[in-house]
C-alpha cells in the first residue's frame, strides 16, 4: 500500500464518517435514539482499543470490562469524594488503568500462548470483587450516586444531545489514533508481528514491547469510555463491569472484524442495537424470553465459523483469527 494513496483515502473516509455523525446528532432529537447512539459510542471506544489488541497483537483480553470499570469508578470516586475536576479525574483514571495494564501485561506478554487472556480474566474478576467489597470507597453493590456532569466550556453536558457531541467526536479521535497507529512505526512493527513473530523479532522489532504498548493503549481507551459512562449515567455500581460484559466486548470486536479499525465500531453498533432489538422482541413474544442470551452465543460461534474476518474485512484476517494455521 503506497503511503500517498493512504494519505487521502483515510481522511476521506473519516470526513464522511464525521459528517454522518454530525448529521445524526443534529437531525435526531429523540433522546431515546440518542441514548442508544451514546451507548454505541461508549462501547465503540472500548471495542476500537480491544480491536487493536486482537487484530494487531494477536492477543485477547477477557477482562476489559474491568478496565472500563476502573475508569468509571476512578471518575466516580475522585469527583464525589474529593471534588476533583471531572476531566482531571478522567485523566487520572486513565493513567491508573494504564499502570495496572502495564503491571499485568509486562510479565505475561513475554510468554507465548494465551497467558494474557487468562491473566486478564483473573484481573477482571478481582476488580469486580473489589468494587463489591471495598465499601469504604465504592459503597459496595448499591453503588455511587450523584456523580457530577462533565462541563465543556462552561456548559454542563447534562442532556443526551450534548453528551452525544462529546462521545462521538471522541470516537472519531480514537479511530484516527488507531488508524495512525496502524500506519506508524509501531503499527508496522505490530503488523510484522501479526504475520511472523520470529521474522519480526529478527528484523529488530521488540515484540514484547510492541504488544505491551498496544495492550496498555487498549486499557486506556476502555478506562476513558468508563469515565464517560459514569458521567453520563451519573451512577455506577459493580454489576455492569463483570465477565459478561468482557465477553460482549470481545464479541463486538470479532463480529465487527478486528483487522480494520472500522470493524470494532461496526461490531459495537450492531451488537448494542441487536441487544435492544432482541430485548424488545423477547418482551413482546414471551416464548422468546431468555433466547436473546442464546442468540449472543450462537452469533459468536456462527461468525467464528463462517466469517472469522468479521463484518468489515481488513487487509486480511488477523493472524489470531486466520482460518488456516501455518503448517
Amino acid at each position: 500500500m503506497k503511503p500517498e494513496r493512504t494519505a487521502w483515502r483515510r481522511p476521506a473516509g473519516l470526513t464522511a464518517f464525521a459528517a454522518g455523525v454530525a448529521l445524526v446528532g443534529l437531525l435526531v432529537r429523540n433522546p431515546y435514539y440518542l441514548n442508544v447512539a451514546i451507548f454505541v459510542g461508549i462501547h465503540a471506544l472500548v471495542a476500537v482499543g480491544l480491536g487493536l489488541l486482537v487484530g494487531w497483537a494477536g492477543q485477547i483480553s477477557l477482562g476489559h470490562a474491568g478496565f472500563y470499570g476502573l475508569g468509571a469508578y476512578a471518575s466516580a470516586i475522585l469527583t464525589t469524594r474529593f471534588g476533583l475536576n471531572p476531566w482531571l479525574a478522567l485523566l487520572l483514571g486513565a493513567a491508573a488503568t494504564g499502570l495496572v495494564a502495564f503491571l499485568v501485561g509486562k510479565p505475561t506478554l513475554r510468554l507465548h500462548g494465551h497467558y494474557l487472556a487468562m491473566a486478564t480474566l483473573g484481573l477482571g474478576l478481582i476488580i469486580q470483587i473489589v468494587f463489591n467489597q471495598a465499601d469504604r470507597w465504592t459503597e459496595g453493590p448499591s453503588g455511587i450516586t450523584a456523580i457530577p456532569y462533565l462541563y465543556l466550556a462552561g456548559l454542563p453536558l447534562n442532556t443526551d444531545s450534548r453528551f452525544y457531541f462529546l462521545v462521538w467526536p471522541l470516537v472519531l479521535v480514537a479511530l484516527i489514533l488507531a488508524g495512525n497507529l496502524t500506519d506508524s512505526r509501531m503499527g508496522r512493527a505490530l503488523r510484522a508481528l501479526g504475520q511472523d513473530e520470529g521474522a519480526a523479532a529478527a528484523a529488530g522489532v521488540d515484540v514484547a514491547r510492541a504488544k505491551l504498548g498496544v495492550f496498555i493503549l487498549s486499557a486506556v481507551f476502555a478506562s476513558i469510555a468508563g469515565s464517560l459512562y459514569a458521567h453520563y449515567l451519573t451512577y455506577v455500581s459493580p454489576s455492569p463491569f463483570g465477565f459478561t460484559f468482557s465477553i460482549q466486548l470481545v464479541v463486538m470486536v470479532i463480529v465487527g472484524g478486528a483487522a480494520s479499525v472500522w470493524g470494532p465500531l461496526a461490531g459495537a453498533a450492531l451488537l448494542t442495537v441487536l441487544h435492544q432489538v432482541l430485548a424488545n422482541a423477547a418482551h413482546q413474544w414471551a416464548f422468546l424470553d431468555g433466547l436473546e442470551v442464546v442468540a449472543y452465543g450462537v452469533i459468536l460461534v456462527l461468525f467464528l465459523i463462517f466469517r472469522p474476518q468479521g463484518l468489515v474485512a481488513g487487509r486480511r484476517a488477523p493472524r489470531a483469527l486466520r482460518l488456516t494455521r501455518p503448517a
Binding site: 494477536g58 485477547i60 494465551h114 487472556a117 470481545v250 470479532i254 459468536l300 460461534v301 467464528l304 465459523i305 472469522p308 493472524r319 489470531a320 483469527l321 486466520r322 482460518l323 488456516t324 494455521r325
Partner: peptide, 9 residues
C-alpha cells in the same frame, strides 16, 4: 483455525 478462535468458540 487458530487456537484463539477455538477458545472464543
Amino acid at each position: 483455525a487458530h487456537l484463539l478462535t477455538l477458545i472464543m468458540v
